[in-house]
């Protein structure tokens, strides 16, 4: 008996140390990101510039690099967390902002705002419209699911249908657009963190950080959900409620992340899997681990994207896939037993 307890503690320790390792990694990457850029400031200058209160170095660190880093962490962490929730409540390894149609409806929101000259009225109209449409589609899926009593299959099918619907609407608008509009739309879909300032971070952090503690508190329920609806119900989980609220919160987070950074929803699919492959499916550890993986992934991608080919920026959506996919395959090949 004692032996099993010891073993359990050992496993937990391993998981905990992975989470701590990721946190340290994130901190390290953030420091590197803070010291890299177009200006010739070295690592030491960059760190000392944090504590200055004026000058161009101060402006670069405080107004350009730091917001970018914080937004990358927020977006990456948020998308990964939301992806984990989607995969848990739908019990499907393919669930992500893409499969649920949230990414494509957000994209459609951005496209309409661009075509109808949104950026003329307000800089936030594109992001706002993307956010609105992302939420609209997830509420649509929820109401369909409610009519059909919340089975994961109906939600995924509804999501895929929504995805096709909104992507063809976006294509239609792109087809009608002028050269400049199509340019702008393509740029938006590539994703970018260049436009981020403290104001955007304020809005995004409220929408991403507020639902997070609630999701974390439900870790046990998500664990039980993995055993199937019946078993979870038998153990006292309100399956319908957790599925609905989980969907609402995860959609909110996804919508916020995508509308500010563009469609990099791929993180939401791959980061939870990377974390799960390393530490398994216990949501107590899976949530923080996958959020940290997502944050590291997006921050690394953005830092590489803006430094590899400086001063030209390789769009973040492209770099994320470039570094995420090979790593994902590496883990997939290394893993001997079935992990999902």
């Amino acid at each position: 008996m004692k032996d099993i307890c010891e073993q359990y503690k050992g496993v937990t320790r391993k998981k905990l140390s992975f989470v701590i390792f990721l946190a340290a990694l994130l901190f390290g990457v953030a420091l590197i990101a803070l010291s890299q850029g177009a200006s010739s400031m070295g690592f030491k200058d960059s760190v000392t510039a944090i504590f200055q209160d004026s000058g161009i170095a101060h402006a670069i660190i405080w107004k350009l690099r730091l917001p970018r880093i914080i937004m990358a962490v927020l977006v990456g962490g948020g998308l990964a967390l939301a992806g984990t929730v989607f995969q848990a409540i739908l019990r499907n390894p393919l669930a992500s902002p893409y499969t649920l149609g949230i990414a494509s409806s957000a994209g459609f929101g951005a496209v309409t705002a661009i075509i109808f000259g949104g950026s003329f009225y307000s800089e936030y109209l594109i992001a706002g419209n993307a956010f609105f449409f992302a939420l609209l589609s997830s509420f649509f899926i929820l109401s369909i699911a409610k009519l059909k009593s919340y089975t994961p299959e109906t939600m995924i099918l509804a999501g895929i249908a929504i995805m096709f619907f909104f992507s063809s609407l976006s294509s239609l608008f792109q087809y009608m657009g002028t050269v400049e509009e199509v340019h702008e739309i393509v740029f938006w879909f590539f994703g970018s963190l260049s436009k981020v300032g403290w104001k955007e971070i304020g809005v995004a952090s409220v929408m991403i950080l507020l639902p997070t503690p609630i999701i974390l508190r439900w870790s046990w329920d998500f664990n039980l959900l993995a055993a199937g609806d019946e078993s979870a119900k038998a153990l006292g989980v309100n399956v319908t409620r957790i599925r609905m609220l989980g969907m609402v919160f995860a959609s909110l987070i996804t919508a916020a992340a995508i509308s500010f950074a563009g469609v990099i929803g791929f993180v939401g699919l791959v980061a939870p899997h990377i974390a799960r492959m390393v530490i398994g499916g216990d949501h107590w550890f899976l949530f923080p681990a996958s959020a940290l993986v997502g944050a590291v992934l997006v921050l690394t991608a953005d830092t590489l994207g803006r430094t590899l080919w400086a001063p030209q920026v390789i769009p973040i959506g492209i770099v994320t896939a470039f570094i995420g996919v090979p790593f994902f395959f590496y883990l997939l090949m290394k893993k001997t037993r079935q992990y999902w």
Binding site: A38, I60, S194, P311, Q312
Partner: peptide
């Protein structure tokens, strides 16, 4: 490239 995205920092520098 003809229409690249560039970092705000580069403009500043």
């Amino acid at each position: 490239i003809p229409y690249p995205e560039i970092t705000p920092e580069w403009i500043l520098m």
